[in-house]
Each structure stands twice: as structure tokens, then as C-alpha cells.
Design a binder for these strands. Sequence first.
DNA 1: GAGTTTGAAACT
DNA 2: CAGTTTCAAACTC
Length: 592
Amino acid sequence: MDTPQKTVTQIETPVSKLKVENSPVFNYINSLSPITTVKSISNAQTFSSLSFTSPPPVFTTPHVASHKGSRFRSHSNSSDPSNKVVEEALPEKEPPQILNNDCLTTTTPRVTNDGACEDGETDLQKMCDDNVKRKSDTPDWETLISDSSDMLIYGSPNDSEAFRCFLQRSSDSKTRLCSGSKPALAPVSQSNEPESSDALSVLHRGVRRRCLDFEMPRNNNQTPRCVVPSIGLHLNAIAMSSKDNNNVSKEYSFTGNVKVGLQSSTTTPVLPSDDIVRENETREEAAGEEGLEEAPVSLALVESEQAGEGESSCKRCNCKKSKCLKLYCECFAAGVYCIEPCSCIDCFNKPIHEDTVLATRKQIESRNPLAFAPKVIRNSDSTIEVGEDASKTPASARHKRGCNCKKSNCLKKYCECYQSGVGCSINCRCEGCKNAFGRKDGSSFAGMDTEQDQENETSGKSGTTIPLPPSTPMPLRQPLAQLPISSNNMLPSQQSQQHLHGASLYNSQSFRKQDMGLMSQSRIETIAEERAEDIENFIHSPVTNINALSPNSKRVSLPHMDSTETTPWRRNGGRKLLLSSIPTFPSLTPHH
DNA sequence: GAGTTTGAAACT
DNA sequence: CAGTTTCAAACTC
């Protein structure tokens, strides 16, 4: 009897009964015991609630095992514990409710006991005593707590910071972490949170977090970015398409995602969010299997980066009739939620309308799986880009579908190729192409020179306009930004699941993010190469064939090949490899 | 800031 | 698939 219940002893109730008989003291305790039992119950509830709702087996075990539980739990349960911890750490943010919960849940194990012990002092004292013993017995708690703190943080609203720290640790780019962290966190937390209390509350938290996160980042330093799009995330092929690029240059991007978060506070990246949420689920699942969890993180990171960068350029849309639910909307197209800076009217691209956004997105993807995929594909060179010029970019990158310019001569941003800072290619159906980054003819990139020359010859406007176009800037970052978006939506895990679809984009994005953020440049380069290969493969593959077959069709285009974007592809092929390689996750694990 | 131009996206 | 319309960004004034 007794022996078996050692674990129970911790729980207290059963033991108490047994012992009660033995000594008056126990009797006394017994009187108390009820309370304790209650606690235990409460704990159980909390745990159950926390872990379960969606919880993967992992969670279940942990919480059950619980208390001692172990790291595992802390990690896995990060949600719960994290929240608790966070709350404790950051009582401010979390509403009292949470605290209560925390008390209940946490009480047993640690802190609560000590400090909180609000409940019955006597009981608590006893409990504390017991706890003390327990602690002595299982110092793990503290350690766990401390250890888990990171994770906990993760889950909590504050997560962003903690998360960031992690990320930073794990990865290098701080910005990413900061910005990205949110999205990633949000998703994660959300997934977890729901367990704890109300899904809604969770969502709100998520939102808050994102907002906070965003703020945090800002505060931190990073830049005021819009940070907002991480949101993946966030976050969607990210979307990025040309815009993404813009993002890069401007802010957008993922930022977009990030933005989202900021936006209304609601959250962020629409798609990303959705995707994130989904992905979170899927991830968890997948993660369980593969340990993809990382992916999300990476995505988040990516997003964050983008967001961070994007921030500088926070993208904003000005939609009036599309409700920001069509690809006309840059934010939506980028897979991010609209945020405050947007001047849109009747905007539905907000976390509040997540369902609508997702549904719309699906609809669009059903029509064109690549709708949210990056528009620009880059070669290995793409990484190079550095700004200097576009000259390089153009060569390596190409617009999937190609442009259809007739009057702009591909010398203005009306041209997606030009806007993205890439040269026109065979896929383009443009007329009078003078793309400075590379003409459809083949006159290569470098446009500047050639173009200027030509322009000089043809028209005077050229020079200034061409160079100006941020095209250069765009291209550089674009990849990141873009990828993130789509990726946001689609987590790697999802990617794997989703396959090539739009998801692929996401995947790619996410991938990118990971790549970008986590991976060193060298890796990126390699990836880029891989991408190129993948792209080729893609082209050969049925899907790609589509593009090849119908270059004209806008949507047909391949799944993003962009260096940044392209990643996704490879992911398809080599995704796992990348993922596995991706450090992002690892960083998280360390926490364990 | 308002109006125009442009080409992608969406629709038929 | 092609043509047309709608839309919002890019651009101009």
C-alpha cells in the first residue's frame, strides 16, 4: 500500500489517511489533508487542463508524473509551467486569474508553496514542510523550475523575451529572435495555453504576447520595427513576394507577421497565425515524431527577422474594397495580418477574423497552390546579394511566373520582376523589356550598366528610376522576408505534410527563416545551391512542369525557388535535412 | 493629397 | 484558356 504510493505521498492524501491512523499528528494532518487533497486535485486539474486539451502524449505523461515530473514535464508542459513561472516572474502582465491558477497548479511544487502559500497557512505550512521535504527529496523542482524557467518563459506571455534569449542563444541573430520570437511563441504558447484556461484567453494572451513581444523588441532595442510580421510569421510565403522584398527593405515582411501581432494587439500574421496555430498542432504532432518543434521556432525567428527588418519598413496596405482578403492586399499576400499602420478599410485580415482569413486563404490556395509562394526564385548566388547591387541579384534570382509588363518596360515597380530586383526571364511576357536587373532577352542583369546605357539611348528617365528602385534592397532581404511569411503559415512540419502546395511556400519560408536565422550563411549558401537543384527538380517534377508549361499563367509559377524562398522546395526534398540541421530547435531543447 | 497609370488578381 | 473587370500599388502632378 504505502510503498506503491510514494508518488502519492507527495500527493499527500492517500498517505495521510494511512498514517492518520498511526498518529494523532497525522490526524491533525488529516484534517488538513482534505485541503491538500484538494490541492492535489487542483493540480491535477490544472495539469490536465493544461496538458491535455491538445496535448500530445508527452504532455500527458509529464503532467501526470508530474510534479516531480521532471524536466520533461517542464519542458513539454512548458505551457503550463511556463505560464506559471512567467507569471511569477512577471506578475504584472499576467492577470490575476492566471496567478491564481498558477498558485493552484504551481503551489504544490515549488514557489507557490513558499511564497504563495496563500491558501491555508497551516495547511500550507504543512504543505510547505512537506514540500521542503519533497524538495530535499527532489531538488529537481527548483532546478527544474530554474531550468524550465526558460521554457516557462517561453510559454508565458513574456515568452517573447525568454524566447528571444533562447533564440539568441541558440541562434545568432538577435533581431530575429526578438521579432520572431513572438510569433513562434505565440503559436506555441497558444497551443499550450488553451489548455490552461480558456482558449480565448489564450488567444488573447497570444495576441498580447505578440504585442508585448513586439513591444519588447522595440524596447529592447532592436528597432522599432514593425516587428510586427513575424507573424512567420509570422511568418507566409511569406510572402513575400516582391512585397516581401519590400518588406525587407521596408519593414514588412514578416514583419508583416510581426506586424500582425502588433496590429491590434490581436496578433499578427494572419496566415502565419493560422498556420502557426495549425502548425503548432501539427508541429507538436510532428515534433513528437520528428522533433520538428524546432521548425516553429525557426519560423518564428525568421519571421522575427523579417519583421525586425521589415519593421523598418512596416508594410502597410491601403485596401478599400478587398477587405484585405485577397492577394491584392500586400499584407494578406504576404501572409501577415494587417496592423495599425495599415490604412485599409473594412479589414478582415486581423486575428479577430482568423477563421475568415484562413478560409479565404485556403480558398485561394485551392485555386492556386502557389498563390502565397514566393514569387522570386533565387539561385545559390542569391545569398550574395548584398547589396551592392542588384547586379548580382538579378542573375541569380528570377521571378517565377514572370511579368507581363507592357508599358512600364520593366523599369518601374509596376513590374514585379523589377520590384523584386530580379531580371526578367523567359517566363516573362513583357514587352519592351528594359529591366535593369536583366532583360528577358538575356541581356543580363547588371542592369545598371546595360540599362543605363540603353536608357540613355532610349529614354532619359531611366537612369534615375531604375537604380533607385529599391529593387536592390528588396532583393536582398526579400528572400528572408518573403520566405518567412509563407513559411510562417506553413511550418516545416506542415510543409512536410502539406507537400508542395502553398504550404510549400510556407515551408520554404519557414525554412528560410530557419536557414536564415539559424543557419549560418555558409549553410544558407549551401541551401541556396540545394534550392537551385530543388528548383530544377521541381521544374522537372510535375508541379514545376506546370510552370514550365504555362509560364504565362501567373499562378502557375513554381513554388518559390528563391534562395530564401526556394528553400522550401528543397525542403520538400531535403527539408527534413535542413530541419534536422536547423539549430533553432536545438536551442530550445537545451532548455530542457 | 488627389488623380492617373499600371499590371496583377479576380472574375466571366 | 482568353478576355474583361477589379483592385491597389506605383507613380505623377
